[in-house]
């Protein structure tokens, strides 16, 4: 059933040309150089340290590596991270 719903959503986005992030609750990531990263639609912090940040997403994790990380702001679905960002990586769980 869940898979079915997901398939319908994906099909709708593709055929009706709707924005993917709004339709499918996908994370939207905005970066300003290597200084800021702004993530919408995250599902919580799994790990946070100076060099690493791991965020839960609907279908996996987002792994950000770098140095001197500071969470400037955090809201239930948004997060603004500051520091020297080296990599942003998707980790699929299924």
């Amino acid at each position: 059933m869940k898979k079915m719903r997901r398939w319908v959503k994906q099909w709708m986005t593709e055929t009706m040309e709707l924005p993917a992030d709004a339709m499918m609750d996908l994370p939207r990531i905005t970066m300003v150089g290597h200084l800021h990263i702004y993530i919408e639609n995250h599902r919580g912090v799994l790990r946070f340290s100076k060099e690493e940040m791991r965020l839960r997403l609907d279908d996996g994790q987002l792994l950000i590596r770098g140095d001197g990380f500071v969470i400037k702001t955090i809201l239930p679905e948004e997060i603004l991270l500051e520091g020297k960002i080296i990599s942003v990586q998707y980790v699929f769980e299924n």
């Binding site: 912090v45 500071v70 969470i71 702001t73 955090i74 239930p76």
Partner: peptide
């Protein structure tokens, strides 16, 4: 597991900022 603190604050709409290790 201090990450839990951050998440719980978010759920309860307690504003926290400038979080560093």
């Amino acid at each position: 597991y201090p990450e839990l603190f951050i998440n719980r604050c978010g759920e309860r709409k307690i504003m926290i900022w400038d979080i560093r290790q």
